[in-house]
Amino acid sequence: MKRVMFVCKKNSARSQMAEAFAKRLGKDKISVTSSGLEGSQVNPYAIQAMSDIGIDISDQTSKALSDFQPQDFDVVISLCGCGINLPPEWLTQEVFEDWQLEDPAEKPEIFPQVRDDIQERVGNLIDKLSS
């Protein structure tokens, strides 16, 4: 089972949504968590965007990347272009991707669009890791 880390700057929106989709779509296929370069709290707009499609992330918490060890993960996905700021040991995992998704916290009206993009990308990632 592949171990996946979704990372973003604050672990408040994009990485939280990716974690939730991966847990749902990759159940029994991958192990997943998310973190941020710095911890914060889950954005209420992210909670609402996910609730709108029947996924509850209100119990998820923001976690700092420094609380994890890179060797514990096979796959590292940056959602915000923050890959350039990750410590080098996080960039050398079996799979590293930087999706560079727009920050919906800057424009809350794009939360549904970003959410849907994340769902598609997570589905594609799980398919790739499962084959």
Rank of each mutant, 00 (worst) to 15 (best):
I118E: 02
L65R: 03
M50F: 09
Q71R: 11
W99D: 02
S78V: 13
L125D: 01
L91W: 09
G81P: 08
R3T: 03
Q71D: 14
S66P: 08
M50V: 13
I118M: 02
L37S: 00
G83D: 15
I47A: 10
E109R: 12
S51G: 11
V114R: 05
D52R: 07
F21E: 00
E94I: 12
I84R: 15
E106C: 09
K29A: 12
Q16G: 01
D74H: 13
K2Y: 11
L86G: 03
T33I: 14
S66L: 11
F111G: 00
K63P: 01
S66Q: 15
A49C: 11
D127G: 07
E89R: 14
E97M: 10
Q69K: 14
A22W: 04
I118Y: 01
G54W: 12
S31F: 11
F73Y: 13
W99F: 13
V42E: 02
Q71S: 15
V76F: 09
E94P: 10
S58D: 06
A13R: 07
T61V: 14
Q113N: 09
V7C: 00
Y45L: 09
S31P: 05
A49K: 05
S15T: 03
L91H: 10
S66I: 12
R115N: 08
S34L: 03
I77E: 04
G81V: 05
G39E: 14
D103S: 09
I57Q: 00
D127W: 10
I47S: 06
K10R: 06
P87Y: 15
F111M: 00
R121N: 04
M1N: 08
I55R: 11
L101V: 11
C80E: 07
Q48G: 10
Q16R: 02
T61G: 13
K23E: 12
A18C: 08
E38F: 14
W99Y: 14
R115L: 03
S58H: 07
T92D: 14
Q60H: 13
A13C: 05
Q69L: 15
T33Q: 09
A22E: 00
K2D: 04
L79R: 07
F21N: 02
G26V: 02
I118D: 00
P112D: 06
I47T: 05
Q41R: 12
V75Q: 09
P87Q: 11
E120K: 12
Y45K: 11
G123E: 04
I118H: 00
G36H: 01
Y45Q: 10
D72C: 13
A105S: 13
P104N: 06
V42T: 02
D56T: 06
P108A: 09
D116Y: 12
K63L: 04
P87W: 08
W90A: 02
P70E: 01
L129C: 03
I30C: 03
R121I: 01
K2I: 00
S15P: 03
A18E: 02
D28A: 13
D59N: 12
I110Q: 05
L86N: 06
C82G: 13
S78R: 10
A46Y: 08
P87C: 12
I55N: 10
P44R: 05
S12A: 14
